[in-house]
Deep mutational scan, measured.
Amino acid sequence: MQVTWGNVTVTFSNPEEAKKYAEKVARKLGGQVELHNGQFRIK
């Protein structure tokens, strides 16, 4: 499962870890987490 924002992509084998990481990054950037085609995207 991947977490992407800007031109950065981070890949996780565990979807739960990916979700936690995406939420943490979104909080830092003041963005929203979207699940899109099996990727968490931060907008």
Rank of each mutant, 00 (worst) to 15 (best):
M1T: 15
M1H: 14
M1G: 05
M1W: 15
M1P: 06
M1Y: 15
Q2S: 14
Q2A: 11
Q2D: 09
Q2W: 06
Q2T: 14
Q2K: 13
V3H: 01
V3I: 04
V3D: 00
T4A: 09
T4E: 05
T4D: 02
T4M: 09
W5R: 02
W5E: 01
W5S: 03
W5Q: 02
W5C: 11
G6I: 04
G6C: 13
G6L: 08
G6Y: 08
G6A: 08
N7V: 08
N7D: 11
N7S: 11
N7P: 08
V8L: 09
V8P: 01
V8N: 09
V8E: 06
T9A: 05
V10T: 05
V10A: 06
T11V: 10
T11S: 12
T11Y: 14
T11C: 08
T11N: 10
F12Q: 00
F12Y: 03
F12D: 00
F12W: 03
S13V: 09
S13G: 10
S13W: 08
N14G: 06
P15C: 11
P15V: 14
P15L: 12
E16A: 12
E17G: 06
E17K: 12
E17S: 12
E17R: 12
E17F: 09
E17M: 13
A18S: 02
A18I: 02
K19T: 04
K20N: 10
K20E: 12
K20M: 11
K20R: 14
K20W: 10
K20Q: 11
K20P: 02
Y21C: 11
Y21F: 14
Y21L: 04
Y21V: 04
A22Y: 02
A22E: 00
A22F: 02
E23D: 11
E23V: 07
E23K: 07
K24E: 14
K24R: 13
K24P: 00
K24Y: 15
K24L: 13
K24V: 10
V25N: 01
V25M: 13
A26R: 03
A26H: 02
A26Q: 03
R27Q: 14
R27N: 11
R27A: 14
R27P: 01
K28W: 13
K28P: 02
K28E: 13
K28M: 14
L29E: 04
L29V: 13
L29T: 13
G30R: 07
G30E: 04
G30V: 04
G30M: 06
G31P: 01
G31C: 06
G31E: 03
G31V: 07
G31N: 02
Q32D: 06
Q32G: 05
Q32T: 15
Q32M: 13
Q32R: 14
V33E: 00
E34A: 05
E34D: 06
E34Y: 12
E34T: 08
E34H: 07
E34W: 07
L35C: 07
L35I: 13
L35G: 04
L35A: 06
L35M: 12
H36N: 08
H36W: 13
N37Y: 04
N37Q: 08
N37S: 05
G38E: 04
G38D: 06
G38K: 05
G38V: 02
G38F: 04
Q39T: 13
Q39E: 14
Q39P: 01
F40C: 04
F40H: 03
F40M: 05
F40P: 01
F40L: 12
F40Y: 15
F40A: 02
F40K: 01
R41W: 15
R41I: 15
I42T: 01
I42C: 06
I42Q: 01
I42A: 00
K43M: 12
K43Y: 13
K43A: 10
K43G: 07
